[in-house]
């Protein structure tokens, strides 16, 4: 069953008096028990998608979508309190900088108690409630692998190392027993060993608690160990979408290929000391977005047609937006006869 369904999400931001489409017709969906990776360079709008889902965008930004639904309920149309309820119970978000995402002046214990839904507390008197809340906190924190729980609950954010804070964030996110966890680049800037801990924690949660995860990152290597499906984002446009292994083996979109090529560990055939390939230029700024396919000016396969925005095309659970895809003969694809790809 599809939990979160986003179809043609467009976000317009006013910049120097002009409306700019920071997100242009982004589509994304997450099914139950799925780990979906959302990949893109920094500045491609990953965090904006997360904020659009969680509803914490500034009110002056214009957000439109054909569909932005949670279990079939339209998130854009519902009232503030209904949306808060969904965010409180069903969707949980963890952020890339745990130190900044926790209040520096409140002890972590108090912040944890605050995010326990009231329904979980059955006691009548506040001291009993408090004890119950503490029990839940202990259980959760132990579950995510924090060793000194007591110290953690009695500390302020700045007194703890980054990885403990991130685990704490995860525990806090999970306390409401959500169905979907949105992880916004949770391993950025972490050491490899801590990174691995966080990744395996996510993986275990998915396996044992049937948690769906939207994993936002630019770290392909980390994603490759957990993701089932992948969505590639470039400059506010979704360029490709599909099962991870299939995309990895045969990317359709030139950008996906460039992205995969930039990670040497995905290319066993790569000879030592051979140059790494990369696309020329940099991701365009919001003020200078190209028309049509936004990769156009940098794309090695670009042709005249690329000034028109390509429509999404689907084959075999995979979706891409490109006029001249790789690994597919365009004509065959249009005829719908293409079956040569292994999915």
């Amino acid at each position: 069953m599809i939990l979160l369904d986003i179809r043609n999400l467009t976000l317009e931001i006013e910049s120097n008096g002009v409306l700019v489409k920071a997100l242009d017709k982004v589509s994304l969906s997450i099914c139950e028990k799925e780990i979906r990776a959302l990949v893109g360079e920094s500045g491609s709008g990953k965090s904006l998608i997360v904020r659009a889902i969680s509803g914490s965008l500034p009110p002056q930004w214009i957000i439109t979508a054909d569909r932005l639904t949670w279990r079939g309920q339209n998130l854009l149309k519902m009232s503030k309190s209904e949306r808060q309820k969904i965010m409180r119970r069903d969707i949980a978000v963890i952020f890339q900088d745990p130190q900044a995402a926790l209040d520096p002046s409140v002890k972590l214990g108090a912040q944890f108690r605050e995010s326990i839904p009231n329904e979980f507390i059955n006691s009548r008197w506040w001291w009993q409630q408090r004890a119950e809340q503490n029990r839940i906190a202990w259980a959760q924190l132990t579950r995510v692998g924090i060793k000194d729980v007591k110290k953690c609950l009695n500390s302020y954010v700045h007194e703890l190392p980054d990885d403990v804070c991130q685990k704490f964030m995860i525990a806090m996110a999970l306390v409401s027993q959500p169905t979907l966890l949105i992880a916004d680049d949770p391993t950025r800037g972490m050491e490899t060993s801590t990174k691995r801990q966080i990744m395996s924690l996510c993986k275990n949660l998915n396996r044992h608690s049937d948690l769906s995860i939207l994993f936002v990152s630019h770290d392909l290597l980390a994603i490759s160990s957990i993701a089932h499906t992948i969505t590639v984002l470039y400059s506010g446009q979704t360029v490709e979408d599909g099962p991870f292994d299939s995309v990895r083996r045969k990317p359709f979109h030139p950008y996906s290929k460039a992205l995969l090529d930039s990670a040497p560990s995905f290319r066993p055939e790569l000879q030592p000391k051979s140059p790494l390939t990369a696309l020329k230029g940099t991701i365009p700024t919001l003020q200078h977005l190209p028309i049509g396919c936004r990769l156009g000016p940098r794309c090695p396969r670009a042709q005249k047609e690329c000034v028109n925005t390509p429509v999404p095309r689907t084959i075999h659970k995979r979706q891409y937006r490109c006029h001249f895809p790789l690994h597919i003969d365009a004509d065959e694809n249009l005829d719908g006869k293409y079956e040569g790809i292994d999915v």
């Binding site: 020329k280 230029g281 940099t282 365009p284 700024t285 003020q287 200078h288 000016p297 940098r298």
Partner: peptide, 10 residues
């Protein structure tokens, strides 16, 4: 050249 693509703004 390509590097100047988006940076040609003063």
């Amino acid at each position: 050249m390509a590097n100047k693509l988006y940076n040609d703004e003063q």
